[in-house]
């Protein structure tokens, strides 16, 4: 096998483009054999959503202290897709007693289902709350059995799972590119969209962008660069931010702020 190019996978989430349609959630559910979130699961508060859309209602500044008085047309729905942030400095990793979760050399926080014994310590120590525990053995109705993705393990009960950045697609893409070109994996292949994670592929507005930070010509390069010396990410876009940056987890998922038409004066229905 040819020497692989080093990668640093990451994702950009453009909040401005997100409509909260939940297509990513459904795509993820189907791609990764995530168990069915039935009504019962929601009542038990044990749904599993590797990516989920958090919805917030935003009122104008002057109504912060008494949101119930805000005129309805000024109340804005805000959507925040949250998935595993694949932190460079992940709090979930050191606490796992059996090394079921660790950081790989491509910047991914990976979960080894076979090793997991289900202490759930990682979930406690995840500030983003994106680790999920299989409380029950997953079951699918017979008619959905054939829908399961053969590339992805069906997780048994008693273990943790979480977003993998669709690592099975990355691996398949690597194999395809290597077979076709006999060479390295590159972002040109990525640009063709043949191995983006399912959520990225499904997003109708293109608010999710997946790519390689280290590729200077890649899709992420206009938002973020990697400092040669410190190997840290430098955010180039002034809309860019990271969730809970202050606790120093160094997430690999970068968010782009909502553009508020009222503040920027770009018009809109305000």
């Amino acid at each position: 096998m040819a020497q692989r190019k080093p990668h640093k996978w990451g994702m950009i989430v453009d909040i401005d483009k997100c409509t909260g349609c939940q297509a990513c959630v459904v795509a993820c559910q189907a791609e990764n054999n995530v168990q069915l979130n039935t009504e019962d699961r929601f009542h038990e508060r044990r749904p599993i959503e590797w990516i989920h859309i958090q919805r917030y209602w935003e009122v104008p500044e002057e109504y912060r202290s008494r949101p119930e008085d805000a005129p309805f047309q000024d109340i804005k729905a805000r959507f925040l897709p949250v998935l595993c942030q694949h932190c460079e400095n992940a709090p979930c990793e050191p606490v796992c007693p059996v090394y079921a979760t660790y950081h790989n050399d491509q910047g991914l926080n990976v979960q080894v289902y076979n090793r997991c014994v289900g202490t759930r310590y990682c979930a406690n120590n995840c500030p983003y709350q994106v680790r999920f525990f299989n409380y029950w053995e997953p079951v699918w109705p017979d008619r959905m059995r054939n829908q399961l993705n053969p590339d992805v393990t069906v997780r048994s009960r008693g273990i943790m799972e979480k977003c993998s950045f669709c690592i099975q697609r990355l691996r398949r893409g690597e194999r395809q590119v290597e077979a076709a070109e006999g060479g390295e994996l590159n972002d040109r292949a990525l640009a063709e969209g043949n191995f983006a994670p399912a959520c990225v592929q499904a997003c109708p507005t293109g608010s999710l962008i997946f790519g390689d930070y280290t590729d200077p010509d890649g899709q992420l390069s206009q938002y973020v660069a990697v400092d040669e010396d410190t190997n840290e990410k430098v955010l180039k876009d002034d809309r860019a931010y990271q969730l809970l940056k202050n606790i120093g987890t160094e997430p690999n998922v970068i968010y782009l702020k909502k553009i508020d038409p009222r503040r920027t004066g770009e018009g809109g229905h305000g």
Partner: peptide, 9 residues
């Protein structure tokens, strides 16, 4: 030290 919170560090 273990917490690796920047403020505390």
């Amino acid at each position: 030290w273990y917490g690796r919170d920047e403020t505390e560090q």
